[in-house]
Design a protein around this nucleic acid. Structure first.
Length: 581
RNA sequence: CGGGGCGUAGCGCAGCCCGGUAGCGCGCUUGGUUCGGGACCAAGAAGCCGGAGGUUCAAAUCCUCUCGCCCCGACCA
């Protein structure tokens, strides 16, 4: 009521809905989750589903507006498809089954099978099938900002892994691979712009295509301890990849070649226990894993210091599982830890490429407390094939330049795919070329997790006091704190500041609550508005105000007349920090 | 799906082992003093102790079953 001159009340704290908490919410672990809850941006509704309160929604709206600007500038066209989808359209591509329990399914009142769309390739491709008939209609890129639904086995980390979330997804339709290349690169450039403008530091890594299929894909990753993915990058060159697909180069394993010998190893069967008993380094141990794939047993051999990459295994041999202890005993005659491929018939053996030509190793002898030593690959047992099966580890060498590889956690905020004809062919989405022939569209698919941008920005920009928003996605650019609204000078000066900022379309929030200064300062820090203007009694009398930067804590006291000039200076500088150029 | 933890006032928690009819801090309401970094005093309001069943004279507390939430792992554009 103090500043009734401004209509709508959008910028008045007292009239808004910003339920900040004094104590840290118990269930939240990671910074973004804690601060979004504590700052009154979000409230949980269900496991994996949140309500976005005014501050949260405003942040998301700013992110989505950046996304729209960049997508539009590539020539992509926005549309909005339904979340409801029929079983039939998903069966055409086989994904009604492939998605499994991750898809929310139900029946309508007539008993028809429906789902909540976890993604929209099928639906959008079906549109293209209907409406894009000629090569003259191409290329086209369609995008939407949409709620997606996935019944995640374990929603977690606040808004990082949800069951309902907002995704910007786009789909490109081209007449050939060359066109796809262009569409793909347009998206890649737009994505770089989007994440830069959102104030994020990111890496682009090559990735696994997973359920989407297609030939190539790249992920946009935000390095963060809270990330669920791990990425590998070279310290020397531009090589970077998701750990799931990353490769490395390692030296040959070569120890003196001697006659095979069985030795007693009366210790636990782990690589570290046996190697230290034998006085071997761990790379001299050959790890023999017994897996069951399609009901058949396989030996998978790795260097003792390496771990199996299940993603790579799946790509080569299909989905499998480690053998249970009773199966191990039945097949090898020994318990886990003492097994190996030597002397075992009828079990296919695949080895990691690192073991190619390796000599002088030790592995299990299929007898409790016994191992072979002086094992030579290729001499003592047969190998079906050498495959890339190991997970890259920090310190290994880059395959391109021999630089050192590093591994770090990261949040996946974007993923771009070259799909090719997978969807167009199975759905029968064709166009007619100049020769009058029907051809399937060559497609790409491109996703961005909107809430993940919000969370990543916080993970990368916060301190013990709260969020430090990049100005481009902050719910407000400026927060104004009149410290004592009952004081005439404070009111007049604050009002004047509001009028000045409003006239220049600067996005501000006025903390007009009847609260003590300490509470206002704490809350302003918590919700992370980049620029704070404080109007205190002593300064107000002199016609002065105080400006403070949230990021650097830089403070200056300036005369009221210079408000616009100084505010604009700081805001420009802040936008400069997340500017494309 | 395996392992662990938690559901008690709006929020954060204690009480549970050893049953006896519910408590602390913050917040909220009213009054007063304060007023530039989460003030102080006084007086209040507020909880079918997640749900169902059982044991008992008596259950927040013991037993069984359920539902929900979080964390680790598995899984996952």
């Amino acid at each position: 009521m103090l500043y009734h001159i401004f209509k709508g009340g959008k910028m008045f704290w007292s009239k808004s809905y910003i339920p900040t908490e004094k104590e840290m919410p118990a269930d939240a672990i990671i910074a973004s989750h804690r601060l979004l809850l504590k700052g009154g941006f979000i409230r949980q509704e269900l496991s994996g589903a949140y309500t976005y309160l005014p501050l949260g929604l405003k942040t998301l709206a700013k992110i989505m507006s950046i996304v729209r600007e960049e997508m539009d500038s590539t020539g992509a066209l926005e549309l909005l498809a339904p979340s409801l989808a029929s079983k039939e359209i998903w069966q055409a591509t086989g994904r009604w089954d492939d998605f499994g329990d991750d898809m929310f399914r139900f029946k309508d009142r007539k008993g028809r099978d429906l789902c909540l769309a976890p993604t929209h390739e099928e639906i959008i491709t079906n549109l293209a099938k209907r409406d894009f008939r000629s090569y003259r209609d191409l290329p086209k890129s369609l995008y939407q900002l949409q709620n997606k639904f996935r019944d995640e086995p374990r929603p977690r980390s606040g808004v990082l892994r949800m069951r309902q979330f907002i995704m910007k997804d786009s789909y490109s339709f081209d007449r050939d691979e060359k066109g796809l290349e262009t569409s793909y690169n347009l998206h890649k450039k737009a994505y770089k712009n989007i994440f830069t403008r959102c104030g994020l530091s990111f890496r682009i890594v090559s990735a696994s295509t997973g359920l989407m299929g297609g030939s190539d894909s790249e992920e946009f990753m935000i390095p963060s301890e809270s990330g669920e993915d791990r990425i590998v990058y070279c310290s020397n060159c531009s090589y970077s990849a998701n750990l799931e697909v990353a490769v490395s180069s390692v030296g040959k394993i070569s120890y003196p070649s001697k006659p095979l010998e069985k030795v007693n190893t009366p210790v636990g069967g782990s690589v570290s226990e046996v190697s230290s008993f034998l006085g071997y380094t761990q790379d001299r141990m050959m790890k023999s894993l017994l897996w069951i794939i399609d009901d058949k047993p396989f030996f998978l051999l790795l260097c003792g210091e390496d771990e199996l990459s299940e993603t790579k295994l799946q790509k080569h041999l299909g989905t499998g599982r480690p053998a249970h202890s009773d199966e191990i005993l039945k097949i090898t005659g020994a318990p886990a830890g003492y097994v190996g491929p030597i002397g075992i018939e009828d079990v296919a053996v695949f080895a990691d490429k690192r073991l190619e030509g390796a000599t002088g190793l030790s592995t299990g002898a299929n007898e409790f407390h016994h191992h072979y030593i002086n094992v030579d690959i290729g001499r003592d047992f047969m190998i079906e094939d050498f495959l890339d099966l190991r997970e890259v580890r920090k310190g290994q060498k880059c395959v391109n330049c021999s630089g050192n590889l590093f591994v770090e956690n990261a949040i996946e905020v974007g993923h771009i795919f070259k799909l090719g004809k997978k969807y167009s062919e199975s759905i029968g989405a064709n166009f007619t070329d100049e020769l009058g022939e029907d051809k399937p569209f060559v497609m790409g698919s491109y996703g961005i997790g909107i809430e993940r941008i919000m969370a990543s920005a916080i993970e990368q920009n916060h301190d013990e006091n709260g969020i430090i928003w990049p100005v481009s996605i902050s719910p407000f650019e400026v927060v104004i704190l009149p410290l004592n609204s009952s004081n005439e000078n404070v009111r007049e000066v604050s009002l004047s500041v509001c009028e000045t900022l409003a006239a220049s379309s600067i996005d501000f929030l006025l903390d007009d609550r009847d609260e003590r200064a300490g509470i206002k300062f704490k809350d302003a820090d918590l919700i992370g508005i980049p620029l704070r203007i404080t109007v205190g009694e002593k300064n107000a009398v002199k016609g002065m105000i105080e400006i403070k930067r949230r990021d650097t804590s830089f403070v200056e006291t300036i005369p009221l007349e210079k408000t616009l000039e100084i505010v604009k200076h700081h805001i420009n500088e802040l936008y400069g920090l997340c500017s494309v150029n």
